[in-house]
Design a protein around this nucleic acid. Structure first.
Length: 752
DNA sequence: CGGCTGGGCCAC
DNA sequence: AAACGTGGCCCAGCCG
């Protein structure tokens, strides 16, 4: 009876999907390449020294040499004042030399072609006029030039502004080594009312960086209306470079910049911007805001055209930029003593392991896969189970073959922990005693956050323990429970998958009971069926091959195939959703999340058509409906057909897996980002701080007086971030040390 | 020496 | 032939 019912549901669902598909196709948007996919920007000359730097490098050496000679010959004395005089005089001479030698260079061309409406602000009078003109503007473009990229150590060298109504672009040098300029504080004082005024809209490229920089100089910028870097990531998540000048070179012709725009690296390499002569600085820096403004106008058109993306940008990504800034400013406190002590323990344990390893394998570098493979496979003749690989999986398989392997595995584990985390984290401590990793909201194709310098999203539990709450504070970690399966249940509309969530049952137990047709008692926590189901559901969402699934579950490939088949028969709408997604991406070359974030697959349609037609031919030859598991080994299929099929197989199947995954993972990312906006608002109002995210988890620093009721409100911020057909669930841990969390129930029980 | 790549491995 | 999605960091080894 149930089988028949499911069958009927599937048919109904299929008809709905067919209708949706027809509708989608009828009104489908032109795909990316049809509209404006004009090829890749070439980040050329990336590892070259920069036009400016190459001219300076020789002179720099010369300067050092001359200073040395002058000191040795007694021409100047060793005191600071004389040295300063000498180098300043030399800097001026250097500048003149530079002016002579770059006559035919790109820099000279840039300077010669400086547009009339690029202006310096070098005097009090000019600054006063600028402030007056700014009063008439409603939205402006802003950019800062700095001594480097470290927002906690480097300094602002100059500020660029674009005034769209007055139609001019300014560069305000404030800390160049040579040239007429105003004092930085004078300039900031004059601009602060405008910068901190939220009703004056600001447009920037990578605003997070400039906001941090201004914070460093005591100014909190408000009124961010558009970030061309973030918006570009929504408009093309596949863009190979988001450097402003690379975007200008690639898309500039759409908004009036026909020439090649050179990036900072290309022009200046590692030269500090305060050494760049003012005439070059003007044309480079003013062009920054000029380009940003033009890019903004052009992006606006496209965001309007793609309505959903405009909303996603305005409601989610743009406000999230400030959240990100606050998160990074907060940072994490490291327990230095713990790190020191733990480091010592690890080093001593590693030294002992090295001794044992030397006894077993002789004096080689155990971090070198090349030396290790030579030792294991050439000298010791261990069986090559996995093509001379030396990864953990292979080593575990070889464990019985050689007594040294277990030491090697332990060595791997400990050196990874020591070098990547325990030693690396304390080195990141900034002047304020904390580590400020950065969180990037637009670094992934699916919309997830990424983190770097250091990556705070991949700390193992043992390394998380280095991070502690500041005195009088507590760390709170709230994570969405099973958000991806819940989203699969919502998006696929599969009533059977939704059921356990609606009835408050355990998902994996229920699933296992149905798919394996076992009584629920046999599928409880810790049962093998529940464990298998957990892996199996992930496999369905990620599109795992039968081969991989079979090794993961330690079953045969046929059993894995049977398992997935049973799963799809039990949850037919999940199957329909996946098939529908594959069809959709084949026609449209993109998929989108619940909130309209897109993942595009340029060029997929053609390959998918080839794939489908070849697959059909193969099926016809074999007289079957479904592609067999191993086409390659089947000798009934002509070699040429097989070859052509395998030419596109990898790309097409990969894009299909990515498309399904992008919808689930991307929607989860959207929900988390919405939750973060809620949490940031809530925490800020209480004087607390949202300080990080690990994909489905939010981290906060709160007062140690936090109550059970506060925690409920925090969870509500997250749960209400999306309204789905299944409820969202949040689990919260409270901790003094990350990685030593206590569930909220236990925490408040023991507190009372 | 700095930059790059591939192998390996940490997280969700 | 390839085998599961999204990231970033460390190390060895190579190159200019």
């Amino acid at each position: 009876m149930t089988g028949l019912k499911i069958q009927q549901n599937e048919d109904v669902h299929q008809r709905v999907l067919d209708a949706q598909m027809k509708k989608a196709l009828a009104q489908r948007e032109p795909t990316w390449d049809e509209v404006w996919f004009t090829g890749w920007a070439k980040p050329s000359g990336k590892n070259q020294p920069g036009i400016f730097q190459s001219k300076l490098s020789g002179l720099d050496k010369e300067r050092l040499h001359k200073v040395k000679l002058a000191i040795e010959s007694g021409e100047i004395s060793r005191d600071v004042e004389s040295l300063k005089k000498f180098t300043k005089a030399h800097a001026l001479r250097l500048y003149k030399v530079l002016q002579d030698t770059r006559k035919h260079s790109i820099l000279q061309k840039m300077v010669d072609e400086t547009p009339d409406n690029y202006r310096f602000i070098q005097t009090e009078v000019q600054l006063e006029q600028l402030v007056q003109d700014l009063a008439d503007e409603t939205v402006i473009a802003v950019d800062t030039e700095t001594t480097g990229l470290d927002v906690y150590n480097d300094m602002i060298v100059g500020i660029s502004l674009t005034l769209p109504k007055a139609d001019y672009h300014v560069y305000i040098p404030v800390a160049h080594k040579v040239g007429k300029q105003l004092n930085r504080q004078v300039v900031l004082n004059a601009l602060t009312p405008m910068l901190s005024n939220p009703t004056v809209g600001k447009v920037l490229h990578n605003a997070k960086y400039d906001i941090h920089m201004l914070i460093r100089h005591g100014v909190r910028m408000r009124g961010l209306v558009h970030d061309t870097r973030v918006a570009m990531a929504l408009l093309n998540e596949n863009e190979p470079s988001y450097a402003l000048k690379n975007l200008a070179t690639k898309y500039g012709s759409k908004f009036g910049f026909e020439d090649t725009s050179h990036t900072f690296d290309e022009l200046f390499g590692k030269t500090c911007f305060d050494e760049v002569p003012l005439d070059v600085a003007l044309v480079y820096a003013a062009k920054d805001t000029h380009l940003t403004w033009k890019l903004y106008e052009w992006q606006q058109q496209h965001l309007q055209r793609l309505g959903k993306l405009e909303r996603l940008y305005r409601e989610l990504e743009n406000p999230l930029i400030e959240v990100c800034v606050d998160m990074e400013q907060c940072g994490f406190l490291i327990d230095k003593n713990y790190a020191q002590q733990y480091g010592e323990e690890l080093r001593s344990e590693i030294r002992q392991l090295e001794q044992s390893l030397t006894d077993h394998f002789g004096d080689i570098n155990y971090n070198s896969t090349i030396q290790l493979a030579r030792k294991l496979y050439d000298e010791l003749k261990l069986p090559e189970v996995n093509a001379r690989s030396t990864d953990v999986k292979t080593l575990k398989a070889l464990k019985d073959k050689h007594p040294g392997i277990e030491y090697l595995l332990k060595y791997r584990e400990l050196t990874k922990l020591l070098s990547t985390y325990v030693e690396a984290l304390p080195e990141r401590i900034k002047p304020d005693g904390r580590i400020h990793g950065s969180f990037n909201q637009v670094a992934t194709v699916t919309g997830r956050f990424s983190s770097n310098e250091p990556n705070l999203q991949n700390l193992p539990i043992k390394a998380r323990k280095l991070i502690i709450a500041p005195p009088g504070k507590l760390l709170i970690g709230s994570d969405f429970s099973q958000i991806e399966p819940r989203l699969l249940a919502h998006i696929s509309g599969d009533k059977h998958l939704q059921e356990p969530y609606l009835n408050g049952q355990d998902l994996y137990s229920t699933l296992a009971s149905k798919v394996f047709k076992k009584p629920i008692e046999e599928c409880g926590d810790g049962s093998k069926y529940r464990k298998m189901m957990k892996v199996g559901l992930l496999a369905v969402m990620y599109g795992t091959s039968m081969h991989t699934l079979s090794t993961q579950l330690e079953i045969t490939v046929d059993e894995a195939h049977q398992f997935i088949g049973d799963f799809f028969r039990t949850y037919p709408q999940v199957h329909s959703f996946i098939k529908y997604t594959h069809e959709f991406v084949k026609e449209n070359e993109y998929v989108e999340t619940l909130y309209g974030r897109k993942r595009r697959f340029p060029g997929h349609r053609q390959k998918a058509k080839v794939y489908d037609s070849l697959a059909k031919q193969i099926c016809e030859i074999l007289g079957v409906d479904e592609l067999p598991l191993n086409v390659w080994r089947n000798n009934d299929i002509p070699r040429d057909l097989k070859r052509r099929f395998y030419d596109v197989k990898g790309d097409v199947e990969s894009a299909r897996r990515q498309s399904v995954n992008a919808i689930i993972q991307g929607t989860a990312a959207d929900v988390m980002k919405r939750a973060m906006l809620n949490l940031h608002k809530y925490c800020t109002a209480r004087g607390w701080t949202l300080c990080g995210t690990v994909h489905d988890e939010a981290l906060m620093i709160v007062d140690d007086t936090v109550t059970e009721c506060d925690v409920k409100e925090i969870e509500a911020c997250m749960i209400t971030a999306a309204s789905l057909t299944v409820p969202l669930k949040v689990d919260t841990e409270i901790m003094q040390r990350w990685g030593e969390g206590v569930k909220k129930g236990e925490w408040f029980a023991s507190a009372a």
